[in-house]
Nucleic acid binder design. Sequence first.
DNA 1: ATGAAAGCGCTAACAC
DNA 2: GTGTTAGCGCTTTCAT
Lengths: 345, 345
Amino acid sequence: MMGSDSRPPTLEQVANYAGVSRATVSRVINGVQTVDPELRRTVERAIAATGYVPNLAARSLVTRRTDSIALVVSEPENRGYETPFLTRTFTDPYLGRVTAGAQEVLRPLGIHLVIFLADPPARSHVLRYLRQGHVDGALLISSHVDDPLPGLLVDLGVPVVLSCRPGQPVNTSFVDVDQRAGARMAVDRLASLGRRCLATITGPLDMPAAQDRLAGFQDAVKAHDLTHTHVEGDFTRGGGERAARSLLSTHPETDGVFVANDLMADGALRVFQEAGRRVPEDVAVIGFDDSTAALECHPQLSTVRQPVEEMAGEMAELLLTRIREPARSPRSVIFNPELILRASA
Amino acid sequence: MMGSDSRPPTLEQVANYAGVSRATVSRVINGVQTVDPELRRTVERAIAATGYVPNLAARSLVTRRTDSIALVVSEPENRGYETPFLTRTFTDPYLGRVTAGAQEVLRPLGIHLVIFLADPPARSHVLRYLRQGHVDGALLISSHVDDPLPGLLVDLGVPVVLSCRPGQPVNTSFVDVDQRAGARMAVDRLASLGRRCLATITGPLDMPAAQDRLAGFQDAVKAHDLTHTHVEGDFTRGGGERAARSLLSTHPETDGVFVANDLMADGALRVFQEAGRRVPEDVAVIGFDDSTAALECHPQLSTVRQPVEEMAGEMAELLLTRIREPARSPRSVIFNPELILRASA
DNA sequence: ATGAAAGCGCTAACAC
DNA sequence: GTGTTAGCGCTTTCAT
C-alpha cells in the first residue's frame, strides 16, 4: 500500500497496475469525460490499491497553476503599538471572518487558502513565496496608506485583490464598504437620540478606512450642526480605553460617541462606566464592524455592520476572474453598511 | 526585464545570457561554494538583468522538498460554542504567539510557514494539501482528546509535531508545558493568600490541557486541605462570564478562583465585579497563559505563564529534525510554567 | 476513446 | 571548477 519508506506511487505505476497508459490515468484523475466507464473503473481501483496521490510539483510544473491562493495580512512597519503585530492580528475577530468568507467560495472549487502574516521581518519571505509561484494569486489585507506591498505585488505581476481602498492608487481590484456612509449612519442615530455633543474615536489616521470613517463623521456632524471632536485611537481595546480617558478629561460634556471599531468601543465602554457614566443614558456609544466583540460588550454594542464575509467572498471571486482573465481591467466592489441597534445607543 | 505577458525567464535563459551552463547558474543560486568568484559575479548580473526567479515546482519536483511547513490549527468537530471556530481561533492571542515563536526559528532557515485552519469543513482539504506534498511537514495545534487529525497525519507519513500531549497515544513528538505543575502553583498562591474556599473554572474537559489543569488544581487543593469546586468553561471570554455567574450562585462563599485561561479570567473578573465582589480583596483570581488579555484585565491578572513562543520554536526544531532524520524516534519536550503575580491575586 | 511522445524547469551525478 | 546528461512526475498535443 503506502510504503512509507520508499517513494510514493507515481502515475506510471498506477498505469502499469491498471494495464493502461499514463494518459488514461491522468484523464481519470482530472475528470476528463472521454474515458470508457469500464476503464475508468479499473483505473480507480488501481488508484485505490496503490494509494496513489498526485504529485503537485510535477503537475503545477506543467499546468502553471497551483490551485491555491494566499491570504496575506500586511503591516507596513512597526508603529509602536503596545501589542505586537501578530498578537494584534490574531486578536482581531476581523481576520476570522475574512477567512470564513473566502473559504466559502474557494472550497467548493478545490482551491486552498493559505494564510500569511507579512509584518516587516516576514515581508521579503512572503514576497518570495508569492513570486516563486507557490500560489496563483493573493487576497491582500492591507490597511495602511503607505504600505508598499500592494504596489510591489502588482508590479511583480502577482494577481491581487485588496481588502479596501488602497492609500495610493494601485492598478488592481479592491473590495470595500462605504465607510463614510457607515459613519454617517452612526451620527444620524446619535442625533436622533438627541445627542448634541458628539465625539469619535478614530482608527490610526494613516489607514484609509480610519480616514473615511472620520470624514463621514465630520460630514454628518456638520449636516446636523452638532458640537464635535475626535481622538485618534489604534483599533485595539487598550487604545480605546486610552482614547476614552483622554476624551473624558478634555470633553466631559460628550454625550454621544462613534467609535471606529468594536474592539475600541469595548474598551471605551469600560472606561466610561468606571468613570461613573451610564451607557447609553449619559453617553451613547456606537461601534463599527459588528464583530463578536460587539456582543461581548456590556451593554451590548450598537454598531455599523460591514458584511465582511460577503466582502471576502467577493474578493475571492474577483481574484479568480483576474487569474483566469489577466487582460480584463480591474473592477472594484463597494458594499453598503448597515446600522445594528443594540443597547448602547 | 520582466515581460509580464510572456513566460518568466528560466535557468536556461540566464545561462545563455551569462554564457555559462545551467549547472553553473544552479550552483550560484543554491550558494554552492565551488564556483569561480568571477563567474559568480557574471551569473549574478545575468540573474538581475533577466529578473530571474527560480521555479519552485520544478525545483521541488527534483529535490522533493518544498522548504515550507504548515501550521495547522485543528478543531475536531463543532461543539456548539457560541462563536464559530474561525472567529474563536483568531480571537485567541495564543495563535499569534505560536506563529511568532515558530517564525523565529524558521525564518533564518528560509523556510516558509503557511497557516491552515482545519475545522470540519476544511479538514479534508487540508489533509489533501499536506498529502500532496505542498509542505515538508506540519506543526499541529490540536487540543481535543478525540481529534483524529494527529493520527491521520502520522499514518499518512506526514512529519508532524503536536502542540501538546495528544489525547490518544500517537507516535510522534509533542511539546507541552507542565500543566499540572502550573495549576498547582496557582493554588499554592491562593492558599498562601489565606483563601480557603477555592474554585476553578476549567477549559472544555475533552481537552487534555484542561484535564491536566483541573487535575493539578485538585492535587494541590487536597494537599492544602481546602474546600473546592469546579465549573466547566470553554476557554472563551463569554464562557468565563457564564461560569463565573454559575459559581457565584452555587458557591457564593468562594474566595479564590483559578481560571484555566486568561480570556475566561477576564470574563469572570467582570462578572465578579458587576456582582459587587472586589478583586482581589473578596475574590482572588489567577489565570493561565499570560497572554495579552492578562494585561487588559482590571485589575491586571496574576497568571501562570507558559512560554508559548519558546515552545513553538521547539516544535519547529523538533519538526525540522524529524524531516531531516525520519528514522529517529520521536522525542517530546516539557516546559516549566511560571507564576506571574499582578494585581488580581 | 486510447496511447506515444514531447516537454515543463530544475538539480545532481558524473565526466572532464 | 565547469559542462553534459539524465531524469523528477505530470499533462497534453498528436496520432491512431
